[in-house]
Structures are given as C-alpha cells and as structure tokens.
C-alpha cells in the first residue's frame, strides 16, 4: 500500500489538477468553437447545391478516415510549419479537435434536420410562417432535441481524445501523471497504479455528469 502515499506528497495533487485543467481547457475550447461551426456545417450538408455537397462529403470523410493522431501531426508539424504559423502544440490540438468536432456534429445536425417530417414544414407554411420563422420556431427546436444526447456523447469522446495531445508535447493530465511516476520511480516503485487510478477518477468526474445528462435527455425526449 506504500504506493498510495505518493498521492499525499506535496505538489503531486495540485500538479495533477493543473494537468486536468489543460485537458479540460483544450476540450472546452474545442467544443465551444465546434458548436457554432458544427451547426453551420450541418446546415451546409442539407443544401442541394452539388458543389457544397461534394465539399462537405470530402471534409467529413477525410476527418473520419484519418486517425486523430495523424491529424494532430499534420496540424502541428505539417501545417503550422509549411505556412509558417505560430501554432503551438495546444493550438494545434484545439484546431484538430474543432475540425473533428464540427464535422461529427455537423453530421449529427444534418441527420436531425433531415429527420424532421416534411409535414412540419408544410403546416408551418400553411399557417403563414416564413422560412426563418419556420426554422427557428419549429424545425431547430425539434432538431436540437434529437441532437442533444448524441452531441453530449461526442463531447465525452473529445474529452477522452485530448490524451493524444501528450504526443505533441502538451503537458495535460496524463503527461503530468507520467512525469510524477518517472520522478518517483525509486522512492515509490508501485505508484503507477495509484496515479492512474486518480487520473481515471478525474476523467470519470468530468465525463460522468455528461453521460448522465445525455441519458436523461434521451429518456425525456424519447417520444419525439
């Protein structure tokens, strides 16, 4: 049980929290930026214009086919340097997660918009609502309901995937954990398990409420 004592060492817990903050920051910033972009992408995906359709299709497929890690390397080593961007590792992560989140969210938005029956548009039209009123008062509220559970799951996936940021040298919670383990290899040889247990708990505390929200919403809105 000696390994557990490492958690009481001064600085260990605060450092882990700092790492968690980086994780939450990357995920939070990505989600905040991906939300409006995803709505836009989803709307573009429903357009009939063939050029827009092809571009959106290629965008979505590219993001889906490429492993996230490859995207991160392209953004950090390829992109940033080729265009001489001053993009640090955190920025590259946010960029990739925003592009990924917007593509996936966009596809969810498209599905939700397309699942609204045509008669909803038609009854709104016969009642005299114009297209904007129909979209904001009738279609979007219904689409958002259908969308919410799946997009909460997407957010948890983004939170978990931030661990890949380590590979670009971002010191997020997993990296901090590794550093602590390495530094205390001789003093606390069996610390590994304990540190990872704490990290596991931290992810859990961030993601669990999201899963609960998702499940609640799914139940509550199951009827439409």
């Amino acid at each position: 049980m000696r390994g557990a004592e490492i958690l009481l060492q001064p600085g260990v817990f605060p450092r882990l929290l700092q790492g968690l903050w980086v994780t939450v920051w990357i995920a939070g910033a990505s989600v905040l930026l991906a939300l409006p972009l995803g709505l836009l992408v989803g709307w573009l995906m429903t357009l009939k214009n063939p050029a827009v359709r092809v571009i959106m299709r290629v965008y979505l497929d590219f993001i889906r086919i490429m492993p996230q890690l490859a995207l991160l390397f392209i953004a950090f080593y390829g992109f940033a340097q080729a265009f001489d961007w001053n993009l640090d590792a955190t920025g590259a992560c946010v960029l990739v997660f925003v592009l990924w989140g917007a593509a996936e969210l966009g596809d969810l938005v498209r599905g939700a918009l397309e699942s609204i029956p045509r008669t909803q548009y038609e009854s709104a039209k016969v009642l005299g609502l114009n297209s904007w009123q129909t979209f904001t008062r009738v279609i979007l509220p219904q689409a958002l309901r259908r969308l919410l559970p799946a997009s909460v799951n997407l957010v948890t996936r983004i939170v978990k995937t931030t661990s890949l940021a380590t590979l670009l040298g971002v010191v997020e919670v997993i990296k901090v954990g590794q550093q602590i383990i390495d530094a205390n290899r001789f003093q606390y040889p069996d610390a590994t398990l304990w540190i990872y247990a704490v990290i596991f708990l931290m992810y859990f505390i961030v993601c669990w409420p999201l899963s609960i929200v998702a499940r609640r919403l799914e139940k509550r809105w199951a009827h439409d």
Binding site: P117, T119, Q120, E122, S123, A124, V126, V138, P141, Q142, R145, H223, D224
Partner: peptide, 13 residues
C-alpha cells in the same frame, strides 16, 4: 387558407 392534414402534424416542441 387553413389546412388540416391526414398525418398528425402538431408541433411536438
């Protein structure tokens, strides 16, 4: 013009 359709088309929201 007012219209009522065969399908139940109230706004569920």
């Amino acid at each position: 013009v007012g219209m009522v359709f065969q399908s139940y088309d109230l706004f569920p929201n």
